[in-house]
């Protein structure tokens, strides 16, 4: 019993000494440098990298921050648009090829902080993106549909208009997995 008490006493002394020496004598322990994380993939609007960037440059596009995308990619986007639709003049938003691709090359989703948020609902344009928005048909229409949306009728709607499961009305809104 005594031995144990003695050992405990020695242990206490030791730890006190250690604590004190930590405070007074040891060099200050610097906080660990924060972990850094580097960009691998990014996305603003749907299907931008997949549609408007050539295979060879898809990684480059993911590595280019939005504030630098316009200068680097606007002309390339225009070439890709005309490769997809050589007959492109303007679209239903009245944008010629340079205006349309210039707007798309900076891959940022604009979101209204009041009122309806939707990719396109017939009235509101690019005020957000809801789960149910048929974004692909909107993009097909703007790429292939011409100024009044009537050109290339076989290409302007994929006729998949909704998700295969209903969304929830409460958080987290996405449907449960299959």
């Amino acid at each position: 019993m005594k031995t144990i008490k003695f050992l405990a006493f020695v242990g206490l002394l030791l730890s006190l000494t250690l604590l004190t020496s930590c405070k007074d004598d040891d060099p200050m322990i610097l906080p660990e440098p924060a972990d850094m994380y580097t960009l691998e993939d990014q996305m603003g609007r749907p299907a931008i990298n997949t549609v408007f960037v050539t295979s060879a440059e898809k990684d480059d596009f993911n590595q280019t921050i939005p504030s630098e995308q316009g200068a680097a990619f606007a002309t390339k986007f225009q070439n890709q648009l005309l490769a997809l639709n050589a007959g492109y003049t303007t679209n239903a938003l009245g944008m010629d090829a340079a205006t349309f691709t210039g707007a798309l090359a900076t891959d940022v989703l604009t979101v209204a902080t009041s009122g309806t948020t939707t990719f396109f609902d017939g009235t509101n344009v690019l005020t957000g993106r809801r789960l149910a928005d048929d974004v692909i048909s909107v993009e097909l229409l703007l790429i292939f549909g011409g100024p009044n949306g009537m050109e290339n009728p076989g290409l302007t709607d994929d006729h998949v208009d909704a998700n295969d499961k209903a969304f929830l009305t409460t958080f987290p809104y996405l449907a449960s997995p299959h």
């Binding site: 299907a47 997949t50 990684d59 993911n62 948020t117 409460t170």
Partner: peptide, 28 residues
Amino acid sequence: WAADHIDAPAVSSTSADITDYYAFQSPD
């Protein structure tokens, strides 16, 4: 052509491959 699924060689089918992004006013 998908939303952003398998969009580029370096991220395709990796744990960092973003498939989609949405931003909207809460329905709730």
